[in-house]
Design a protein around this nucleic acid. Structure first.
Lengths: 162, 162
DNA sequence: CTTCTTGCAAAATTTTTGCATTACA
DNA sequence: TGTAATGCAAAAATTTTGCAAGAAG
């Protein structure tokens, strides 16, 4: 009984909270929570899924809603990004934009495995702090940043090689 | 008399050295140092120029070589990147690839001004070190990285606003 | 001379938009 | 019932490639 949110007497998962925030955002903008948007949100906020492209999201969404179009997923993910519940990443190797749920209090950066493409998240308070100092030194205020480490697995053979 | 390179009795600037290395790379691969490649190298390694797109490089190159084609600049910059004398950057805001001379011993990352688009270079040993530690912790060896800080000028009005 | 390079134009990728139709609220 | 959303297809924006003609070594 450690996370009774909204005083409603039941627990909302992190991702369920993001889905709620998305619905509230739509309402506040006079936009509609359509069947398609619900399916896309369900797919996107299904836990345990990491960084996915529009085509991956589309394919999964079409399982539940066969006529789903690419443009709908595209525009919905843009709305999610605008509302702050999703983050866009353009990694250097793929050339594709990947989307990730913007979990609260979970800021992190990424290590991209050059062997298998796997994406590992990391967080380092020391780097964050120095970054603020560096920006200030040059007369800037940090708004956002992108820090990606492209790396090889240390093990003799990458255990995730595909 | 502090930098007599190649034992030739005259000084080569940093960028002239990169141009030499590019010529050596071409020779070692059995490729040719054509008039076009020379013009592009001259333009690209002209000092004091920072991060430029293919179209900017093309426009400048055409001043000296009117019939220069985009594809030639594209392929030449790829050769420069492969040979290590140029670095490619795809910043998050532009969607364009920018090229920069890979000056020796001058590793740095970038602060991108969200107000005027200006790109400022920074280097921070502390961040570099922590990055190595972080990667090792997760079982990786750093090959390259990308660290970009998107920021606003602290002054009331950005002095570089355009 | 032979191989590599050029410049054009076309292909490939990925993102973005226009518009007639459909569906929310 | 009016405004917003959808899905298609076409447009944009950028990168990449094929190929015939021309240049380099």
């Amino acid at each position: 009984m450690d996370d009774l949110s909204q005083g409603q007497g039941f627990m909302l998962s992190e991702t369920a909270r993001l889905k709620e925030r998305f619905k509230e955002y739509l309402a506040s903008e006079g936009l509609k929570y359509t069947r398609q948007r619900k399916v896309i949100a369900d797919v996107f906020f299904k836990e345990g899924e990491g960084h996915r492209s529009l085509n991956e999201l589309l394919a999964t969404a079409q399982v539940e809603y066969a006529s789903m179009g690419y443009a709908t997923v595209y525009r919905t993910m843009k709305l999610m990004t605008d509302s702050g519940v999703a983050l866009e990443h353009k990694f250097a190797d793929t050339g594709l934009t990947l989307y990730e749920p913007n979990l609260e209090g979970d800021h992190h950066d990424h290590i991209i495995c050059l062997t298998c493409g796997r994406i590992v998240e990391f967080e380092d308070e020391g780097i964050e702090e120095r970054q603020e100092v560096v920006a200030k030194t040059y007369g800037f205020k940090v708004r956002k940043h992108r820090h990606e480490i492209y790396a090889d697995c240390i093990k003799p053979v990458c255990e995730f090689r595909h």
